[in-house]
Nucleic acid binder design. Structure first.
Length: 877
RNA sequence: GGGAGCGUAGCUCAGCCGGGAGAGCGUCCGCCUCACACGCGGGAGGUCACGGGUUCGAGCCCCGUCGCGCCCACCA
């Protein structure tokens, strides 16, 4: 079979994905006796388009899933999408607006119909994009957070938590987004430092001519002030407590209260209290039984409580109030001030704290098992430092505001009696009010926070609350893979939900990855327009290249930068494997091969087989520890540096000499094919497409690589002596190349070589060198192994215990040679000095492990031998 | 204010258990060698931020300093 000299991913990627799906290779069987290994996908938003963050997240998951599947686990990767409540609602609202349709006008039912239509049309796009990446998800089990099963789970959880008293409705201060016109949870608010002002205002003290100075960053909120506060221990204001002050502009008398919350050191030590629009003030208000005056409409304009400022936007009002304060002589001074402003993470609007009636989840009890999960070792993050991040959030957790004033989402299963206002939480609309018997009840208009349903994802997708076979088999899941940016939103909530509803942690390990940044280290964002589209990268370089790039050289939890050159390097590696296989295939020429007897294997064969064996063991250990970057580096280096650069070159000698030695050629080909097949298995989880393609051509079989067995360490394939010898061969060959290169010996000049050793133990190694040097003729330009004695005009190439002599004297520039040898001598002197220092150190000899000391002694002898050689050569020049 | 990171070759980053500093890209030199120029061979390039400490031995462990971003937080 003829293969093109350059690998073209476009020709094969889609083909293999189809084949895998046709063969049901991604499907997991709940009846399988194999040990399960489960991952549920962090569901991408239906509004979303595949971005680099997804690409990284999915790549890591797919690597784990494919690897475990090959290891013989019953591997299940559950895919699905998230309805993304606010994002989707905003998106569809805007789309409708462009068509001249107003959401309020068409009403809730019609709007939801539009959203479902939109979901059907665009919601599938992201899963198609996941397929392009090669994700081996079990698409038969694809779920959606608002599908029937997930909705049922949501409803049951709401009812259960309500019954237990964990869900309650209350009038409390919440974060309000004036753009989206909905309440938000704490997690959805991002704090960013903004340059603002600190206005110092005089509040006249009633009954005196005096006034008290107050500093504020939000003067407009004074319309809702119902007190001012000082610290109870503050001597400066001791006499003030209990008095009243005049609220400027509003001209209302408000009390002065003493409260520990006030920081005496900050500002003037006096705080205006606006219970309706500040979380702290709200609590102070509760303690002192203060009136709560809401001064804002839902769009953050001032409401009727704002007097003459009513109708103004909050910032307009701020400006007007500051002007009026100044005009009235109340403004003392204005300072520049940097302060943290809360913004809605979706739309970046500055949120406004407001008192509203909302639904909350009480978190104190629920958080406990989630905290203990870490302490008991039932849950851990990789890397471990994220345990702390997770715990700190749980220790400081607030009650979770779960109601949202939008339409798209799970509607809250609560009904209000039109007559008496009784609340009934129920899966179905009650026929009549249990309190007053009234038959008119109205369902709560609100929907649930989108994270309420994603919190249940690990078990709702497996069938919970039904006791399904999937749930019994695959739950709890094995690993969750996600970015550190989503720990609070999602991971925390899944864990406490898992414990509360299933009694178990939903997974035992959370593999955390960082962000994919642009080449300048900036976050990829729509507004910056610096996002790289993974699909374009796949189109240009192939999915395998993108995957390899995303996993190479990246440690868990660390951010990485994306740039094309890295993908090019990955693409080049795919091409390297492609060409290695091409070499084997064109020489194999359809021949059937039997495994040669060990006796027919040359040391080089044993070396590469032994090395492959070692790599399989080492990288599996890395994979076990989620060190995917290190693991892939090992197989990459093995394929390129050992297999391609050394073994193939060595094997060529026998292959091109097949006429004289058919058996040798067959043995070499067998080892080539066997070793490449093994390397393809090891590389498959990282680069599924190209490896599957090559494997299928190479084995000519029906079996899919993705379902092949993961290589395990085999004692029978371990040949440490040959591995050691090969190290010497490389050293020798490099030495020869080095001499030729440094001496500017023309590449066309071929020579013979004489090899000798005084060490009998290295006799086998000499044979290996002889058998390897000739095959490496193209690089070393060695045309024959010379017999007989060395002569004076030969250039020696020294390595450990063995010397090679090249008859190059006439070609060599003596000055250059002297320079080279002097350099070598200096290097050896340095090494010898280091070694001598260590070995003359009593403490090293007594305290270091014996093996280390022995190793150092051997090195010293080795260096001394080489030094002798070098000195002799220098004298001979 | 608190927390956890990062600082290693020109650039981007690895470095597992403490035991002679690595990769990719770039650069320089030589090669279109019959798998691959998306390649082959050879080279240059590092005070592992800085200062202490522990240790026979520190890029790695401990303490401190400087620099850089990050997360959390109700000082108005």
């Amino acid at each position: 079979m003829e293969l093109a000299s350059n690998y073209d991913p476009k020709k094969i990627e889609d083909k293999w994905y189809r084949k895998w799906e046709e063969e049901k290779a991604f499907h997991a069987d709940a009846d399988s006796p194999k040990e399960p290994f489960t991952i549920v996908i962090p569901p991408p938003n239906i509004t979303g388009k595949l971005h680099m963050g997804h690409a990284l997240d999915e790549t890591l998951q797919d690597i784990l899933i494919r690897w475990r599947r090959m290891q013989g686990y019953n591997a299940l990767w559950v895919p699905g999408t998230d309805h993304a409540a606010i994002s989707t609602e905003v998106r569809v609202t805007n789309t409708l607006k462009e068509q001249g349709i107003d959401k309020r006008e068409i009403g809730r039912e019609a709007f939801l119909e539009k959203v479902w239509e939109w979901k059907e049309e665009y919601g599938g796009a992201i899963t198609e994009q996941l397929r392009k990446l090669g994700t081996s998800c079990d698409w038969d089990r694809e779920r959606f957070t608002m599908d029937e099963g997930c909705s049922k789970a949501v409803e049951k959880v709401f009812l259960d938590l309500y019954k237990k008293g964990y869900i309650y409705r209350g009038k409390r201060i919440i974060n309000w987004c004036p753009t989206c016109k909905t309440s938000l949870s704490d997690a959805e608010v991002e704090h960013e430092d903004q340059a603002g002002h600190f206005w110092h205002i005089r509040y006249p003290i009633v009954g005196t001519d005096d006034a008290v100075e107050i500093a504020t960053t939000r003067p407009e909120t004074m319309l809702g002030d119902t007190a001012i506060a000082v610290h109870p221990d503050d001597e400066r204001y001791k006499d003030l407590v209990g008095k009243t002050v005049i609220l400027p502009l509003v001209n209302k008398e408000i009390p002065v209260v003493a409260d520990e919350y006030v920081d005496m050191e900050f500002g003037t030590g006096v705080v205006k209290i606006t219970p309706a629009h500040d979380p702290n003030d709200f609590e102070v208000g509760q303690r002192h039984d203060l009136e709560v005056i809401n001064i804002l409409n839902d769009d953050a304009t001032i409401n009727e409580n704002g007097g003459k400022y009513a109708g103004m936007d909050r910032y307009e009002a701020r400006k007007a109030i500051v002007e009026d304060l100044e005009a009235g002589g109340y403004l003392v001074k204005v300072q520049e001030h940097l302060h943290a402003v809360g913004t809605h993470d979706r739309c970046k609007t500055t949120v406004e704290p407001m008192v509203k009636e909302q639904w909350f989840v009480r978190m104190d009890e629920l958080a406990k098992p989630a905290i203990e999960a870490i302490e008991k070792g039932e849950l851990t993050f990789v890397p471990e430092r994220f345990n702390k991040v997770y715990l700190r959030w749980l220790y400081n957790i607030h009650d979770w505001c779960i109601s949202r004033q939008i339409w798209w989402g799970h509607r809250i299963p609560a009904y209000y009696c039109d007559e008496c206002g009784e609340i009934v939480v129920s899966s179905e609309k009650p026929g009549k009010c249990p309190k007053c018997g009234c038959e008119h009840l109205t369902q709560d208009e609100d929907t649930l926070d989108t994270w309420f349903s994603s919190a249940l994802w690990p078990f709702s997708t497996l069938g919970w609350p039904e006791d399904t076979k999937d749930l019994r088999t695959f739950y709890p899941t094995s690993v969750l893979v996600t970015g550190y940016d989503i720990i609070f939103f999602w991971v925390v909530r899944m864990v406490f939900s898992g414990y509360e509803h299933t009694g178990k942690s939903p997974f035992h390990t959370v593999l955390i990855h960082g962000l994919v940044r642009d080449s300048l280290g900036r976050k990829m964002s729509k507004s910056l327009g610096n996002g790289i589209d993974p699909l374009e990268v796949i189109d240009k370089y192939g999915a395998d290249a993108l995957r390899l790039t995303l996993v190479t050289g990246n440690a868990p939890g660390n951010d990485m930068r994306y740039y094309d050159e890295r993908v090019e390097a990955s693409r080049n590696f795919a091409n390297k494997m492609w060409n290695a296989s091409r070499f084997i295939l064109m020489n194999l020429d359809g021949a059937e091969l039997e495994r040669p007897d060990d006796a027919d294997l040359l040391p080089a064969d044993k070396w590469i087989m032994s090395a492959a064996n070692t790599v399989a063991r080492d990288m599996t250990e890395n994979m076990d520890k989620y060190e995917l970057g290190i693991a892939v580096q090992k197989v990459h280096d093995f394929v390129w540096d050992e297999f391609c650069d050394w073994y193939i070159e060595i094997a060529k000698y026998r292959i091109y000499n097949r006429e004289n030695d058919p058996k040798g050629a067959a043995a070499a080909l067998w080892v080539l094919r066997d070793t490449l097949a093994k390397a393809l298995k090891l590389m498959h989880p990282f680069m599924p497409f190209v490896t599957e393609e090559i494997y299928s051509v190479l084995t000519g079989g029906e079996d899919l690589l993705m379902l092949a067995d993961w290589p395990v360490y085999d004692e029978a394939l371990s040949w440490p002596e040959e591995e050691e010898w090969m190290g010497k061969v490389k050293e020798m060959v490099r030495g020869i190349r080095n001499v030729r290169s440094e001496m500017d010996v023309p590449p066309s000049k071929k020579t013979g070589i004489l090899i000798e050793t005084s060490d009998e133990d290295l006799a086998g190694c000499i044979d290996l060198i002889k058998e390897s040097i000739l095959p490496l003729a193209r690089a070393t330009k060695i045309s024959r192994i010379a017999d007989g004695d060395k002569t004076e005009n030969m250039v020696p190439v020294v390595s450990s215990g063995i010397t090679a002599y090249l008859p190059l004297a006439e070609l060599v520039d003596l000055d250059k040679e002297r320079e080279r040898l002097t350099k070598e001598k200096e290097r050896l002197e340095k090494e010898l000095a280091r070694s001598a220092a260590m070995l003359s150190n009593e403490k090293f000899l007594s305290k270091a492990p014996e093996a280390k000391v022995r190793e150092e002694k051997e090195k010293q002898i080795h260096y001394q031998e080489m030094m002798e050689q070098v000195k002799k050569q220098l004298e001979n020049l």
